[in-house]
Amino acid sequence: MQRINFISHLFMTGIISSFVTASAWANVGDNYPCLKCHQNFSKAKILNLTLPLKKEHQSLSFKHMKNEKSCLLCHSDNSPNELNMLDGKKISMSESPQLCGQCHGPIYFDWQEGIHGKLFGKGTDQKRKFICAECHDPHNPKFKKMKAEAPPTRPKLGIAKVEHEEKPMNSTTTNEKTNEVKSEKKDHHETE
């Protein structure tokens, strides 16, 4: 839940601040969690970061692209609400699927058609699509393992099945029979 809150927070601020002009940066910083500490976030600083991060960031995990830690591959270096495409184009946070689609092409096309990911809404009416980062943490995109619900209760026949395994009655009898047949055949051959 914390992750979801964090991500939704990121995106809310992303969407809100896309309406805010660049001159109103100080106000945005109040809401944007990174900017509370990182007012003077420079490119040089980011490139010198080492993992693991400071105590405040222990909850953030970076398991995307084999522990890629170059923030600026996706994040814009001068604006925390913008993303860098690989060709240098800047896009807003809400357009982020384009960015993901640069590497995850087939899934991006599936997502555009509504095949990948969950759709909410009425079956025959309008549906709402989720964007990538609403389900996947961009910094650790693989789905976390979860606890399964309780299995169905075994029918009473299941106990009998275990007993059968302890005493494999059918298999022994058939084996004995085949052995007998074999020995008979052997005797037959010997007499011949």
Partner: peptide
């Protein structure tokens, strides 16, 4: 006009339900 309960409960989006007569449906 809703989706089945199992569809909405799926945490990974593995389930897809729809109208097979509509060529634009998922």
């Amino acid at each position: 006009g809703k989706n089945p309960a199992c569809h909405d409960a799926c945490p990974t989006g593995a389930r897809k339900f729809g109208n097979i007569m509509d060529p634009e449906s998922e």
